[in-house]
Structure formats: structure tokens, C-alpha cells
Design a protein around this nucleic acid. Structure first.
Length: 437
RNA sequence: GCGGAUGUAGCUCAGUUGGUUAGAGCGCUGGAUUGUGGCUCCGGAGGCCGUGGGUUCGACCCCCAUCAUUCGCCCCA
């Protein structure tokens, strides 16, 4: 049986052109995030399994985490998300870090599940977190960052929508206003999370099924559904509207609009899967109906650092997967044609290696990226190789060039050839490299 | 974990109601062309028809299983 050449299920090989795209995406992200004063960190891919058991629902840890036992009998997980790790790191140096702390990372994460569009087993996820700020100015900043990232990729506000809600607000509505029990709140949250996927009648039936007989008598399900249809904070009933959490959401949205992030809306159905969120939650959606899923999501989780036995640190963060980002950029035609890193393909004419390599190294020392053919093949084969690799320039080095110290530089797109000194060639090539992007 | 779709050359795909040695375009490769790619012409390599079983005189084709890819469900970090 021959070995398979396929990558592991749900994981991707990055051939040079794929890696180039990844480098472009991550490079753009880093540039924007660092512009806001965030610092990059990283951590091991492996963590003790306990780290995830402490904070997440059982099902996710048991069924969707890659876990194994190491040779010392320790239970180990391949990280399925970064939030527990970064919380651990902050907790470990709780006293000595300077707050507010602004950190980001682009880790690769693994989840064991069936691959589908926008969801693979291995993906890279931008994580941006602020530690030590307890007002919604932190949420404000993170949403501005996510908006700035897409702006830097060339996206416009008609292409995506940022939806904001508050866990505190939902807790108030479900617990105090609708008088649901903790179990009911949990079930209702899951249901609300997939509201847009269900036909209204089915949603109503499921909402009804959560309720006790008394609640059915006083129409609690209908009240809930009525609230979920509301699109504006000022349309909420007054007791809710006047609650501190509703005011906070409203203030956040107003401030973002003021800051020209005009595509932020209130959406009462945004819940987020995890229980650890404690305040504002938000998600970003592609407006293209063919790619209509959340590509970025986050919120406030003030309790996580405290799980490590230190004073809690208020925290807001978001995660953004590379697959969903790439789908978005492809869907809106925002990916530029990326060039190879190689500036020059050196074609050797005749048996000139010994003297040609001196010139080539000179070009390299002056900053050009040069690949040499080295095969001794006929020139047409050497040129074809350069073209196939999408290298923009070929330089011909033969006895004549070596003697004159002038080398023939061929632009492989236009076919134009000129003789230049080595230093001139390097400056031409660098000009081309810096042309746009 | 559940359901649908699809597996034929490196890629995109044909392949007649089940009938000999399995096809095209592109790509790859050699030459025409001993200091110059794309155009043209001539040659060449490359297939256990995803895999295993079954039905049949005979299977790329029909049936079963399995694996893989993909879209959706569940779930969502």
C-alpha cells in the first residue's frame, strides 16, 4: 500500500504560494494590531487537559479536543483555543505585569470535528486581549481594531457587520424580567444562539417547550420571542432599557458610530457559545449571504484569570480564524496577486560557475534575492523555470558579461533586456519590489 | 456522531442499454532551436477507473461494504 500524500484530515499543507498568502494576511494583521500598541506572545501547543476542564463545557473537552496521555501518565491536550493559555500566563505574573496589558497572538489551534466550509481541524486564530480595564472603553478599542484590520485589507463597511450584545443584559432579561431558572436560562441561551437557523414556528415551539406550565399560562415564551425581535435598544421595554447593562451597550454603540465605525449594530441574539463571558459580547459577520457566519467573535470574560487562585483581572478579548478571514477576503476579491520572494533567477551561460557565483553573491550581499539555476541546462530551459516560478527578472551571466562586469538583465514580463552593473541591477530590482503593496 | 453529493492521467473532465488493447484538453518531458520563455510543428512518459468483495460469459458502468473529498446537521474555541 502506497503512502498517502494527503495532509491529515481537516489540516492544510502550505505550499509556497499558500504560505505567501498566510504571510500576507498575518503581516497585515500584525501591522494593525501593533499600531494599537499590542505586543505579541506565544505559548506551547500542548497544555495540561485540566486547563480546559476548569472552564469549558464537558462536551467540548471530551469530544472536540485532541487529548492523550504522555509517557509520564499526564493527561495532555493540544490547545483548542488560546484564552485559557493566555489567562494562565497572565495569572502566573499577575503582580509584575503593567496594566492595562495589551497582548495578541496568532496560534494554531486544533479541534476534533468534522471539517466543513469555514471550519477545519487545524486553524490559526488571531487572539487579541486587553487585561486590566473594567470599562467598555476596552471593548471599544477591540472593536475598532477589528474594524481597522478589515479596512487595511481594503474592505468597506458595506461588506460586513459588527453585532453587539451583553451577557449581563441577557441575564437581567431572562432571570429578573422573565423569571427563568438557571437551567432554563442555559437552554434558552443555546436556543437563541441558533435562532436565525430555525424557522420561526419551530423556534416558537422549542421556546415553549422550555417553559413550565405556569410560565406557559402567563405567556413567557411569547414575551421572550417578542424581545428577541427587537432591533433597537430604545425599543426595549423601559425596565430593560434603563438597566445599566443596556445603557452600557447603547453607549458603546454610540461611541463606535462617533468613531466612524458605522456598521456596528445591536443584536439581541448574539450569545457566544461559552459560559465564561460576563459582559459585552460581539461578533462580526460577512454580509455576503453565501458566507454568512461569524468570522470574528469575542467579549468580556472577567472571571478567567481568577481561576488560577490570584486576584481576578478584568479582561476583554476576541478571536478571529484565518479560514473565515480568508473566505471573506476571497469572497470580496480583496486578495492581491502576491509575488515570489525571489527577485532574480540567474541563468548561467556556459561553464562559468566559478566566476558567476562571485557576482551572484555580490548581488545577494547588496540585498537582492537570487536563485541560481545550477543545472547547466540549455538557456531556454533555465528561462522557462524562472517564468514558471513567477520570478520577475532573469540575469544572464556568461563569459562576455563576466569580462565586461555588465550583466544582461531581462524583465521576464516585458521581455526587455538591458546590460547593467551589479549595483544598478540591485537597485532596479529593489525598486520593483517596493512598487506597490 | 447523523444525512446528501462526488471519486477515471499531475489538473479539468468525456466514456453509448454492461461488450476487445481506456479518451480529450491543459500540464509534464524530448526534439525542431549549441546565448533567450510564451506562438507553431513532431515525438514521449504518465491509469489496479479510490479500495475490497459480489452479480455476470464479460464490470469504469449494476449491487454491498469501506476509505477519501465535499456540502449541510449537531456543536462552535
Amino acid at each position: 500500500m502506497a503512502l498517502s500524500t494527503q495532509p491529515y484530515k481537516g489540516a492544510r499543507d502550505f505550499y509556497p504560494e499558500d504560505k505567501r498568502l498566510q504571510k500576507y494576511m498575518f503581516g497585515t494583521i500584525r501591522k494593525v494590531v501593533e499600531r494599537f500598541g499590542y505586543e505579541e506572545y506565544d505559548a506551547p501547543v500542548l497544555e495540561p487537559l485540566d486547563l480546559y476542564l476548569a472552564k469549558t463545557g464537558d462536551e467540548i473537552v471530551n469530544e472536540q479536543t485532541y487529548a492523550f496521555e504522555d509517557r509520564g501518565g499526564r493527561k495532555v491536550a493540544i490547545r483548542p483555543e488560546m484564552t485559557p493559555t493566555v489567562s494562565r500566563m497572565v495569572a502566573a505574573k499577575r503582580q509584575e505585569l503593567g496594566y492595562p496589558l495589551r497582548w495578541y497572538s496568532i496560534p494554531n489551534l486544533w479541534r476534533y470535528e468534522r471539517p466543513q466550509r469555514g471550519r477545519l481541524r487545524e486553524h490559526w486564530q488571531l487572539n487579541v486581549d486587553v487585561f486590566g480595564l473594567d470599562t467598555m472603553l476596552a471593548e471599544m478599542e477591540l472593536i475598532q481594531i477589528s474594524d481597522a484590520i478589515l479596512k487595511d485589507f481594503g474592505a468597506t463597511h458595506d461588506m460586513y457587520t459588527i453585532k453587539v450584545n451583553s451577557r449581563k443584559l441577557m441575564d437581567f432579561i431572562m432571570k429578573d424580567y422573565l423569571k427563568l431558572s438557571d437551567v432554563q436560562i442555559h437552554m434558552a441561551s443555546k436556543l437563541i444562539d441558533r435562532m436565525h437557523k430555525l424557522p420561526l414556528a419551530e423556534f416558537e415551539a422549542e421556546a415553549e417547550s422550555i417553559m413550565t406550565p405556569t410560565q406557559r399560562d402567563n405567556g413567557t415564551a411569547n414575551k421572550l420571542i417578542g424581545l428577541l425581535k427587537i432591533k433597537q435598544i430604545h425599543h426595549l421595554p423601559e425596565v430593560i432599557r434603563e438597566h445599566e447593562s443596556a445603557k452600557e451597550v447603547k453607549k458603546l454603540i454610540d461611541m463606535l458610530h462617533e468613531a466612524r465605525v458605522t456598521n456596528v449594530v445591536f443584536d439581541i441574539t448574539i450569545m457566544r457559545g461559552f459560559d465564561y463571558y460576563t459582559g459585552i459580547v460581539f461578533e462580526m459577520f460577512d454580509n455576503d449571504p453565501d458566507n454568512n457566519r461569524a468570522m470574528m467573535g469575542g467579549g468580556r470574560y472577567d472571571g478567567l484569570v481568577g481561576l488560577f487562585g490570584v486576584e481576578p483581572v478584568p479582561t476583554v478579548g476576541f478571536g478571529w480564524g484565518d479560514v473565515t478571514l480568508q473566505n471573506f477576503l476571497e469572497g470580496h476579491n480583496l486578495l492581491p496577486a502576491l509575488r515570489t520572494e525571489t527577485d532574480i533567477y540567474a541563468v548561467l551561460v556556459g561553464d562559468v560557475y566559478d566566476s558567476a557565483i562571485k557576482v551572484i553573491n555580490e548581488l545577494r550581499e547588496m540585498g537582492a534575492n537570487v536563485a541560481v539555476d545550477l543545472t547547466g541546462r540549455k538557456m531556454d530551459k533555465q528561462i522557462k523555470t524562472a517564468v514558471k516560478k513567477n520570478i520577475h527578472y532573469a540575469v544572464f551571466i556568461g563569459e562576455k558579461e563576466i569580462k565586461d562586469e555588465l550583466y544582461k538583465l531581462r524583465n521576464l514580463t516585458t521581455g526587455i533586456e538591458e546590460r547593467h552593473s551589479a549595483s544598478r541591477i540591485v537597485s532596479i530590482v529593489k525598486d520593483y519590489r517596493d512598487e506597490d503593496l
